[in-house]
Design a protein around this nucleic acid. Structure first.
Lengths: 185, 185
DNA sequence: TATGATATTCTCAGTACTAAGATATATCGA
DNA sequence: TCGATATATCTTAGTACTGAGAATATCATA
C-alpha cells in the first residue's frame, strides 16, 4: 500500500445514502472536516458499533446461564487467575468501587463466589470462586470461547491479531490521554 | 511480517505477570486453548477496553455541556442528516424503542429537539433540532471532533483507517451472526 | 372491504450500574 | 506517638437505560 500523502488543509465531505422513506429533510450539515479528523471520527463510530454488536452476543450467551456480562467477567477472571482482591477485580473489569461490591454481593448470593479475609491488610477482602462457581465456569467457558470465535469470524485469525494489536495501542493511548475537562478546553 | 503457519492443534498458554501484592493464590486455570480461539478472545477483550477508554473521554466531553453520550449522538445525527423518524434515529444510535422515546422526551424538555408529524404515516414522528439545538451542536461539534482526534492519536491516521476497516467488517459480521440462544448450542 | 400481519411509538416496571460520601484501616513523616 | 494523608471496601441515592407489552396506524391479500 502506498503511503498516503497528507495535507493539513485537505477536507472531505462524507455523505450517506438518501433517506429511503422519500421524505428527506435534506442533509443539513454535511461533515466538512479534515481527512485526519474524519478518520478519527469514523474510527470512534465503528469501534462503538463493533463493540455493541459483539457484546450483544456475549451478553446473550451468558444470560442463558443466568449471568450478566460483568458477573461472567468476574467469574472468568477468578477462574483463570485465582482469588483476587476486590480492588484488583475492579480495575480488571472496569467498574466503580460501588459496582464491584454490588456485583460480588450478587455472586455470593448465587453461591458462586465467596469473600475471604486478607491476612496482611484488614481493610481488604479477597474474592474467590466457590466449588460451585468453579464448576459452572469450567463447564460453560469452552462453549463461550467457541461462540466468541464464531462471532468475530468475519476476520481471519491473522486479521484478528492485527486488529487486537491496533486496539491495544488505541486503548492504552486513550486511557493515558488527559481528559478534556481537566484541560480547560 | 511472515505469514503465520497455523495448526488446528496448536495450543498456547497465556500467562499474566504475578500478583504484585505478594499473596498469590496461584494462576488457577491457565488459558489453554487453540491459537485461533486465543486470538478471538484477545480481540474481544481489547475491543471492549478500547471502547471503554475512548467513550470515557467522549462522555466526559459532552457532559461539560450537560449532555449524555446518547443525547449527543442524537443531536449529532440530526445536525448532519436533518430531521429523522424516531425509528431511524433508534436504529442509528442503537437504543431500544423505549429508550428513544425517553431520550427524545429529555431533549425536548431541554428545548434542543422537537417532534414533528409525518404527513405520510400518522404512526410516525420526526425528531428535528430546534434553533437552540442546532446552535448548540454547531458550537460544540468542532472541539468535540478535535478531542476525539486527540484521544485516538496513539494511532496514525493511516492506522486509524486500517483499524476502522477491520472493525467495520467485524461489526457487520457480528451483527449478522446468529445468536447462540437461537441455535440451541 | 374485511382481516390478519406488520410497523411505529409510547408506557411502565425493573435492572445494572455510577457517583459521592462514609467507615475502617494502613502508611509515613515529624 | 500523633496527625495527616492515602487506600479498600461499603452504603445510599440517583441515572440511564432495557424489555415486554399496549395503542394506534398501515399494508397485503382475499
Amino acid at each position: 500500500m502506498p503511503v498516503h500523502e497528507k495535507s493539513e488543509t485537505d477536507t472531505v465531505v462524507l455523505r450517506e445514502p438518501a433517506d429511503s422513506h422519500g421524505i428527506v429533510a435534506g442533509t443539513a450539515h454535511p461533515l466538512d472536516v479534515s481527512d485526519d479528523t474524519a478518520a478519527a471520527l469514523k474510527l470512534w463510530v465503528v469501534l462503538s458499533r463493533a463493540q455493541v454488536a459483539v457484546s450483544a452476543h456475549v451478553a446473550d450467551d451468558v444470560a442463558r446461564h443466568g449471568l450478566t456480562l460483568t458477573e461472567f467477567a468476574i467469574l472468568e477472571a477468578l477462574y483463570h487467575r485465582g482469588a483476587m482482591l476486590l480492588g484488583e477485580v475492579q480495575r480488571r473489569i472496569l467498574v466503580s468501587s460501588g459496582g464491584i461490591t454490588f456485583l460480588v454481593d450478587r455472586l455470593v448470593a448465587k453461591g458462586l463466589v465467596e469473600r475471604q479475609e486478607c491476612p496482611s491488610d484488614r481493610r481488604a477482602r479477597y474474592a474467590a470462586l466457590t466449588a460451585e462457581g468453579e464448576a459452572l465456569i469450567a463447564r460453560i467457558f469452552p462453549q463461550h470461547a467457541a461462540m466468541i470465535e464464531r462471532v468475530v469470524g468475519a476476520l481471519s485469525p491473522e486479521e484478528q491479531a492485527a486488529a487486537a494489536s491496533l486496539l491495544k495501542r488505541l486503548g492504552h493511548g486513550a486511557a493515558a490521554a488527559e481528559f478534556s475537562s481537566a484541560r480547560g478546553e
